[in-house]
Amino acid sequence: MTVQPASLAADPMVPRRFRVDRAWSEIDGVRSMELRPLDSGPVAFEPGQFNMLYAFGVGEIAVSLSGDAAQRDRLVHTTRAVGEVSRAITQLNEGDMVGVRGPFGTAWPIARQTGRHAVFVAGGLGLAPLRPAIYHVLANRADFAGLTLIYGARSPQDLLYADEVARWKSRFDVEIEVTVDHAAPGWTGRVGVVTTVIDRALAGVDPALVSAFLCGPEIMMRYGVMSLEAAGVGQDRIWVSLERNMKCAIGFCGHCQFGPTFVCRDGPVYRHDQIAHLINKSEV
C-alpha cells in the first residue's frame, strides 16, 4: 500500500479542513469521530500513523488513526478528553469542522508480515492505534498464520470498542484475551495485568512465527516485551508505538525527541531492537 506523504501537501504546517460526519461516545471521556475532507489532498494513511487534529481557536494535538485504512475517503479518530484541546475535540459533533495535518509517522509493518502469527498487545486506549492493523489482518486472515489480541484495561467499563472486540472474538480464526486490572463481582472475564496473559496466550504458538505489536502505557509495553522475549519472540519481531510531546509533527519543533530519533518521523512505531537501549533509561 502506498500513501502519498503529507510532505507533498502545500504547507505541512497548515491544517486541511475536514467535516465531522459522525461523532459518538465510546467509553467515559472517550469519543470517536468520522471525518470527511473538505479541502483537497490525500486522505489515505497506513495503520499506526497519526494526525494532528485542530480544534478552532483552541489548539492542536496528535491523535492516532484508528479507522480502516482500506476506506480511503474518511478518517476515524478516537480521543480521550485529558487536556484543553482533547476536550474540545471530544466536544465536536456532526457538521462541525476540524483541522487535520497528516498523516505523519511510521506505520505498523503489518502488510509485510504475511505468513506470520500477528500478536497484538493493547493497553487501555492503545487499542485505537492498533485497530487499523487488526482490520488488515482480519481482512486478509488467510495470509497470516494466526491472529491473537491481548487487551487490557483498567476495568470492564474502560474497555474500548467492546462490542467490536466481542464480534472479533466470535470468529473461530481469532484468539482474543481480554483482561482488566479491577472488576466488580459479576465480571466473568479475566482480572490481572495484560502482561500476565501473554505467556498463556502464546502457550500453543510457535514463537518463531510471532510478529508482535504493542501499544499502551510505556511501562506495560516494557513488561510486555519482557514476557514476549521470555516466550522466545525475537526483539526484531516486536514493534511498539511511543508517545511524546508533539507540536509540529514534521521534525521542526524538537519536542518529541527520543534519543537520536524524532517520534514524529522515526516513530511512533519502532521496531523494539532499535530502541531497546533507550527504553529502560529514565528521562531520555
Binding site: 480521550r80 485529558v82 486506549l125 484495561a153 486490572d181 499502551g216 506495560m220
Partner: peptide, 20 residues
C-alpha cells in the same frame, strides 16, 4: 514472584490519567 510483579503493575494503575 511473578504474581507479585503483576500486582505491582496493577498498583501503578497504568491506564489512569494522572492529569485528570
Amino acid at each position: 514472584a511473578q504474581r507479585v510483579r503483576a500486582l505491582r503493575l496493577q498498583v501503578l494503575d497504568l491506564y489512569g490519567t494522572a492529569s485528570s
